[in-house]
Amino acid sequence: MLSLRTMGSFHVGGRGLVVTGQPKRRITYSKAFADVEYDPNGHYWIEQAYVQYFIPSRLRVPTPLLLVHGGGLTGSVWETTPDGRDGWLPYFLRAGIATYVIDMPERGRAGFCAHEGIWPEAPIVRSEEEAWRLYRFGAPEGFATRTGFPGLQFPLEAATAFARTAVPRWPGNGPMMLAGLEAAVQRIGPCILLGHSQGGGFAMAATIAFPDLVRGCVLVEPHGVPAPEEIARPEPRGCLLVMGDYIERAAEWPPLDAKARAALAGWAEAGGQAEIIELPKQGIFGNSHMPMMDRNSDQVAELILRWLDREHAAGRL
């Protein structure tokens, strides 16, 4: 049973933009509001992040958790799995963890920019073929028949539902997205970051940038992590790295895995508490790059919850 004390949301960060010198044009908003003059010149606010929060009636630990989604995705990845099961958001809430979910700038309900020339690159979106390969659902030649890796935990029968969660992204907006996450951390206050994929790299960077606010971080199959020499002042804070299965069967993943391990080693060398959970070595097999959606998602979440309990018992949260 899930009992909430409160829930809500806010937008944070971003910047003001003044548009001048652009021609007016005729547009149609609706059948009742047609052929009206639209003036694009004026003052706008862009690049803000959107954060939704849920506070359980009874708290397991005093420090809230901020969930950070990966590239080309939104905060919806934490809510419900593609085949309709509860995701990690309700899991952690039922466990008594106050949980915040961010839509990074340019994603989901966060701030976009519709004006030409402000974001110089064209947007991209991940194809189903690319997702199949990068998310380690199966070998590339298995895509046409949707034949996944043996023992795969991802629910391939819901692959279409998962494909609907993909959104456009602008490749050059990494610094802007990190700024949105950092603004959220400053607004929330002391918290723990749990980041997946691109969000894992941002989570580690924000943890380093705000040592007085971020009490620890969980990196779920991260990429874009800081280099070991960039890691400083982790003090005794904990960093947990979670890696799934089939790493050696996807060409992109061995180097990403190596960089994540190097970052974790740099964390430990700088004085932080570093821990890695390799799911196959725990006897947990078949996990894709999307463990929060895999059939055994609760089992993986339980390992993270145990780590949070240990960090709390050690006084680091």
Rank of each mutant, 00 (worst) to 15 (best):
P56A: 00
E229F: 05
Q52M: 04
Y44P: 05
G8F: 00
T20A: 14
T145I: 01
R107K: 08
C239Q: 09
R26Y: 00
G14P: 08
W119N: 07
W132D: 01
A232F: 06
M7K: 14
L264Y: 05
G283W: 00
G111P: 09
P150T: 06
A313S: 12
I46A: 13
D86L: 08
S197P: 06
C217R: 02
K24T: 09
V218W: 06
A274N: 03
R58M: 13
P175Y: 06
G224M: 03
G21D: 12
A227N: 01
G75K: 04
G72M: 08
Y100P: 05
E37F: 03
G75C: 02
G13Q: 13
F285L: 08
D257R: 15
P236H: 11
Q282V: 01
S197C: 08
E141G: 15
P168G: 11
A313C: 00
E130W: 15
D86F: 12
I97R: 07
V125L: 13
E248Q: 14
D35A: 15
G180L: 11
F285G: 14
V36H: 05
A301R: 08
Q52L: 00
P64Q: 14
G315W: 06
N173G: 12
R295N: 12
R249L: 15
E121R: 13
V214K: 12
S30N: 12
L279P: 08
W307N: 03
A206Q: 02
N41D: 14
A184K: 11
W88G: 13
C191V: 03
L93A: 12
V12N: 04
D83R: 07
R15C: 02
Q52N: 10
P23T: 08
L67T: 06
A122I: 01
L194W: 00
G16Q: 10
T145A: 15
R249T: 00
M290E: 13
E121T: 05
R295A: 15
I118Q: 11
I192C: 12
P254A: 07
I284N: 06
A184V: 09
R316D: 00
F10E: 05
G21I: 05
V51E: 07
R107G: 00
S30Q: 01
V218P: 05
A268D: 02
V125A: 15
